[in-house]
């Protein structure tokens, strides 16, 4: 057992880490945009939009992520939708899955603002969109940020599912290195873990800090 095995394979680790970071950032950004839109649907005055938003979140949120990947890879092609294998499949599946959690976090933040604020906004003639952007979301944002950080942390870990679908991110890198150096499996996997923790622990701390701040402001 030899720490040098990690140093020797640093380029592979960094390449894997870069891909994991990319999957997290790109899917995270996409999930924020879509999740916000779905949350808006769920509180909209139109029943059909509310229903669509509810079905979307409940379906995606309550399925294993791996199954979503299998759907994308095995079932969609039967309907003529062929996703480019690997990276983009991963981005699309991670975005869709995570957007449901974002929508749920944003929706509970919106609900926490209180119906009176929305009614007052509508009563002075603001449209639904205007009430949301000028009155509801600015007040929801404080309580929504900590749970959103936790959603992104979960996403960072969930990117590892892509390892099973030809994306050589951190976990796939670790598996390859372990196969090449059977004597150093534990150390190599600890190396993988450290790269995750480098991101997830500080992010978790930040979420805790902000959560306490919100609690104080109440």
């Amino acid at each position: 057992m030899d720490l040098m095995v990690i140093a020797d394979n640093m380029p592979a680790y960094l390449a894997g880490f870069r891909l994991t970071a990319q999957l997290t950032l790109v899917s995270g950004a996409g999930a924020l945009v879509i999740g916000l839109a779905v949350a808006a649907m769920r509180v909209s005055p139109l029943g059909s939009l509310r229903a669509f938003g509810a079905v979307y979140t409940e379906l995606l949120r309550n399925m294993p992520l791996t199954l979503i990947f299998f759907f994308a890879v095995l079932v969609l092609p039967q309907f003529g939708v062929v996703l480019p294998f690997g990276y983009w499949t991963a981005i699309i599946c991670l975005t869709a899955y995570t957007s449901a959690f974002v929508a749920e976090a944003v929706r509970s933040g919106i609900n926490a603002v209180g119906i009176g604020q929305a009614e007052a906004a509508r009563a002075i003639g603001l449209t639904f969109g205007q009430s949301l952007t000028s009155v509801i979301l600015p007040q929801a944002v404080r309580s929504v940020i900590p749970p959103l950080i936790n959603v992104i942390i979960a996403l960072a870990k969930n990117t590892s599912v892509a390892a099973g679908f030809a994306v050589v991110e951190l976990v796939a890198t670790g598996r390859r290195l372990a196969q090449q150096n059977p004597g150093d499996v534990m150390l190599l996997l600890v190396g993988v873990a450290v790269f995750y923790l480098l991101f997830t622990i500080p992010a978790g701390q930040l979420a805790n800090l902000l959560e306490r701040k919100v609690a104080f402001a109440r």
Binding site: G116, Q117, E119, A120, A121, R122, A123, I124, G125, L126, T127, Q130, V135
Partner: peptide, 17 residues
């Protein structure tokens, strides 16, 4: 929305932003 602007409403619990 335009109609609501024409009818002012004052609530028991104020509901100021």
């Amino acid at each position: 929305a335009r109609l609501r602007a024409d009818v002012g409403m004052v609530f028991q619990s104020f509901n100021l932003f």
